[in-house]
Structures are given as structure tokens and as C-alpha cells.
Amino acid sequence: MHASNFDLPTYLQRIGYTGHAIADTATLLALMRQQLFTVPFENLDVQAGKVVSLAPEEIAEKILRQGRGGYCYEVNGLFAMALQALGIPYQFVAARPMFYPARRPRTHMAVIAEVEGRHWLCDLGFGSYGIRAPMDLEMVDVNIAQDSDTFQLTRDERGEYLLKARVDGEWANQYSFDLSPQEWIDFVPANYLNSTHPDAIFVQKLVVVQHHSSGRSILLGDMLKTITDSRIEKKQLSPTELSEVLLHQFRLTPVIEM
């Protein structure tokens, strides 16, 4: 994943990373966490009636220089640019969201990174119950604690992985995927669907998620949900409050009138 306007120092400054950046496991884990905690998952462009651009240069410009976030293709695409700059091999995978009542196509993108002989699921763009650190693909059927969350990867006889999250004391399926490598252009139809189809949640309502070390803040429409160490607070926002929350809590300037 290459963009002519991407450079590693600018990326590290954008996510506030000050440690050593080399092609090792510690760097992979640290970069994902740092980007997750500084770059929001958001669909402001879709809400403004735009089709999200998958041009790598436009993604780099939007997130690195405009201080924006994005949804899965954008934030995971940016992470892939950083992996490439560090010399960490990776591939994109297409994942099927599993929390809908009806079966859905594989519209989600995740990244599999290879470092120090292991393959890691990296995903910075799944919203509410996305993983909070890379997951070793060898660690199947094992409960993996990440801060206050717990995740698990299972694998079936066909080699397909299923990511589960512990939600309200029960395992909830998040998405499934296999290791068939995907090219960047393969996500163009899914991106168009997520940007335009009336059934897509990104078209239906505003979605913003910002992870932090003790939980996450989730804005869904005009409802703000704050999760801190498993405690949940909800607040319905007025239009004025919504604009203020976007600006001051998520550090985003609305691109449409709220």
C-alpha cells in the first residue's frame, strides 16, 4: 500500500508515537494501539453524501494532514502504508460482518501482518467491538484479554476464522474471514456499497468511535455512549451538543450541518 504523500515520520507524529519504529512485534503492537487511540473511526464523508475515496494519496491527506479519521478501508489502509514503510509484510483480507440478522457480503477489510515468524490480525476499523491490539492467528480457541475486553478467534475445518467478542457476558460473533489475499482494488465495490446503499449503517446514521486506554466513546446518530472500564454511560445529544462533542471530544469538524 503506497501513497506518494505518505512518510513515516509524519505518520508517527500524527499518532503521537515516540518509540523506536522497526520491523518487530513490539513495534507492530505499539503502532496499532497508538493509531487506534488517536485516529477516530468515522463516516462524516458518507453523511455528507460523498463516496469515500480509496485513492491512497487522498487517504493520507485526509488522516495525516487534515486530522480526520475514516472507516475500515481508510484507517486500515493507512496502517498498511506504515507497515510497508517499515518493511513488515502484510496482506488485506475481506471479512464478513456477522452481527446482522441476515447474512451479509464480505464488506469489511482487515490486515494480516507477518512479523518474527507469526501472523497477526490487525484491525483498526471495526467500530464498537473491534480488537484493541493485534491477535496472533495461532491463538485459536483462547480467551484473549485486551484491556477490559475479551476476544476469541476460532477456526473451522475449511480454515475460516471467526472473531468473537465478549458482550454483556455472552460471546457475540463479529466477523469471519479466511486468508485469501485481496488486492486494494477488490474493495472498491464494498466501499461503494458502504458509501451509498440505503441499508448500510454508514448511510443511515452518523458513526464515530474513538478508542482510549480504558474503553471507547461511540457516537451513533445523536446518541453518545461512553464505555470506561466496562461502565457504560449514554446521553442523547441536541444538535448543538452534537457539534460540540464532534469538535471537542472526537476532534472532528462536521462537514455538514448537524
Rank of each mutant, 00 (worst) to 15 (best):
R65H: 14
Q66S: 09
R68S: 05
G70M: 07
Y73R: 01
G77A: 15
M81F: 09
L83V: 11
Q84K: 13
G87Q: 06
I88Q: 00
I88C: 02
F92P: 02
A94S: 11
A95Y: 00
P101Y: 08
A102E: 14
R103D: 13
R103Y: 07
R103H: 10
R104C: 10
P105G: 13
T107Y: 03
M109Y: 04
A110F: 03
V111C: 07
V111W: 02
I112P: 00
A113S: 10
A113H: 01
E114C: 12
E116Y: 12
G117P: 02
G117D: 08
L121W: 01
L121F: 05
C122D: 01
D123L: 10
L124N: 05
F126V: 07
F126W: 06
S128H: 12
G130W: 01
I131H: 01
P134W: 04
M135Y: 02
L137H: 03
M139D: 08
M139S: 10
V140E: 06
D141L: 07
D141E: 14
V142Y: 06
N143W: 08
N143I: 12
A145L: 07
Q146H: 09
Q146E: 08
Q146M: 07
D147T: 11
T150E: 09
T150A: 11
L153I: 05
T154G: 07
T154F: 08
R155W: 03
D156K: 10
R158F: 11
R158Q: 13
L162Y: 06
L163E: 00
L163F: 07
K164L: 15
K164P: 00
R166H: 06
V167N: 00
D168C: 13
G169H: 11
G169D: 11
E170M: 14
E170I: 04
W171T: 04
A172D: 08
Q174T: 05
Q174Y: 03
Y175E: 03
S176P: 03
F177V: 04
F177E: 00
D178M: 11
L179F: 08
S180T: 12
S180D: 09
P181C: 15
Q182P: 04
F187L: 12
V188N: 13
V188C: 13
P189K: 06
P189E: 10
A190S: 13
N194C: 15
S195Y: 02
H197N: 09
P198V: 11
V207Y: 02
V207T: 09
V208T: 04
V209Y: 03
H211D: 05
